[in-house]
Design a protein around this nucleic acid. Structure first.
Lengths: 198, 198
DNA sequence: ATAGTTTTATGACCTGAATCATAATGATAG
DNA sequence: CTATCATTATGATTCAGGTCATAAAACTAT
């Protein structure tokens, strides 16, 4: 996360996207560094049969879409506003100027990429299991890492729909619904008004 | 990839690992930057029931195990010599000295991380499909990227055993064997002396 | 409140990949 | 050349999760 004022000093602009609005799309050329001021962003793909695959969710303070900026390739996925959000956009050239002038910020970017790679490895290993129950539980626990403070036994509210969970894990909605219900029976999660707590 | 002489100037040492030898293991503290001089390295996890999950293969010229160096976490996986190999090891502190003195090399590291993140996204999306056949084919094509020159229609030799393919994709050996045989019938791959060509 | 839409729920059925068992083939070492 | 071991092969069986259909519950807007 780069200081907001510094970004503005390098001519970043603040953009507002309403829920569902496309921020960038697959196979487009990467032009900007994006940093979320408020709201959440979803990165996804649609495969041949139109089924959605969710790559990632990004939250307040996080940046996204950098990798292609560094290696001159097209975006591997789409970015869509998951809720209404405000996002800082900085042109690629200005980002590089900024990094050149501020090595410590360059190091932060490197750390952020390292962090994402690290979590990808963790989640890949935890989700490699075939059993949907195991994968769904691990996915919930993975989500917990984005929650600053966790109180009580079932403090984390899963904000995703069953469909989105299914799309992230490559399962069917019905399977997710059944497994989640089962997890409730086993007291592993709580369901209140259909929302899952873990 | 960092210039070999430069690494040596910063007190890197060359180590030899014979096939199967552990280079580092899961949950250990990251101490070194590793760069492969010759041979190949496999990164994997073993989950609760002892089943192997292969994270990645790394080849000559590539570095591995950096992410934990940057963010002070333990290794998320094990690194094992996939063949006999020579590897340059540079202590973390010396790596940071080197990066500090050579910003252009720091940028290269950033690019390398960005590149890996990019490919993780690509492969995650391509492999998200449920159908083993699709996943195996995409996996083969993904492997092709490591082959410099490809001649003819079936020029790439898959060096992994069916078991290793299965472990990477979260499938069973028998399934991989059957699917690969089927792919041969469909002329999508060739099998010579049990080795797969694509 | 009402209508319309989205999300969750649930049952019946079916298929494809896991599982289990056993054998054949190819590689490796002595 | 032979014995041993690792890998691939293949058939039989099972069952988890996908598919299909239909309904109920929650949210949304007017």
């Amino acid at each position: 996360m780069i200081d907001q004022q510094l970004l503005l000093d390098f001519n970043a602009e603040i953009c507002e996207y309403w829920k569902g609005k496309e921020i960038f799309s697959e196979n487009n050329t990467a032009k900007y560094y994006y940093q979320i001021v408020s709201g959440a962003v979803k990165m996804n793909n649609y495969n041949d049969d139109g089924k959605e695959f969710i790559q990632n969710f990004f939250y307040k303070g996080q940046s996204f879409g950098e990798p292609p900026l560094f290696i001159d390739v097209k975006y591997p996925a789409n970015a869509i506003a998951f809720s209404d959000c405000k996002i800082l956009k900085l042109e690629k050239e200005n980002l590089f100027k900024l990094l050149f002038q501020h090595p410590e910020i360059h190091l932060n970017i490197t750390k952020s990429l390292a962090n994402r790679l690290y979590y990808k490895a963790i989640i890949a290993s935890e989700i490699s299991s075939q059993e949907p129950e195991h994968r769904i539980l691990r996915f919930f626990d993975y989500l917990k890492k984005d929650v600053a403070k966790i109180e009580g036994d079932f403090a984390y509210k899963v904000v995703y729909t069953r469909q989105q969970i299914a799309d992230t894990l490559g399962l069917r909605v019905e399977t997710v619904i059944r497994v989640v219900k089962n997890l409730e029976k086993k007291k592993k999660v709580k369901i209140i008004k259909r929302k899952v707590f873990r």
